[in-house]
């Protein structure tokens, strides 16, 4: 069985020019922390946005480049101490917020391999792309477990 057979094809995405206001509106529709893919006009994934990215935009020393420096402590951002003004929701766009370092997996990958991929990378879900790197779906650990349980007649 390959991912194409069991992946979730309904994906909420944003374009790189979407404002923070729009993204926050979308976040409010979720009950848990979402991971929103940022795709361009052709459907190719440019990055992902999570709640963490939205908080870190207000902390300038959380720059990507500092991840390469060995002696810097990276304390968690204190959300109660952030200097935020209402206008900011129109000043930032998805392109500023998104994490360009993201994982994806191909739709022809076997379910077993995808499960190992999730375990090795310590993630709960991953984006699925086709050969031209266009976003076609996503899969989570729970979906794979559910598929296995279904095969075994448990559900």
């Amino acid at each position: 069985m390959i991912l194409k057979d069991i992946m979730c094809k309904k994906i909420i995405t944003v374009q790189p020019c979407a404002t923070l206001a729009k993204i926050l509106d979308m976040f409010q529709q979720f009950h848990t922390f979402p991971l929103i893919p940022v795709v361009d006009d052709t459907g190719i994934v440019k990055g992902t946005i999570s709640l963490k990215n939205i908080i870190e935009i207000f902390e300038p020393t959380k720059m990507e480049i500092f991840k390469s420096i060995s002696f810097i402590e990276h304390p968690e951002v204190n959300i109660f101490d952030l200097e935020i003004t209402p206008e900011m929701k129109y000043l930032y766009i998805a392109d500023d917020l998104m994490d360009t370092k993201f994982l994806s997996i191909k739709e022809e990958t076997s379910v077993e391999k995808a499960y190992t991929f999730l375990q090795v990378n310590h993630i709960d879900k991953v984006l699925i792309v086709n050969d031209t790197k266009q976003l076609v779906g996503w899969i989570g650990t729970f979906d794979i477990i559910r598929t296995v349980f279904r095969q075994k007649g448990l559900i």
Partner: peptide, 15 residues
Amino acid sequence: FETKPENKDITGGNC
């Protein structure tokens, strides 16, 4: 921190 949205469109319109 001061809020001065210089040269930016703050309408938050569509893409």
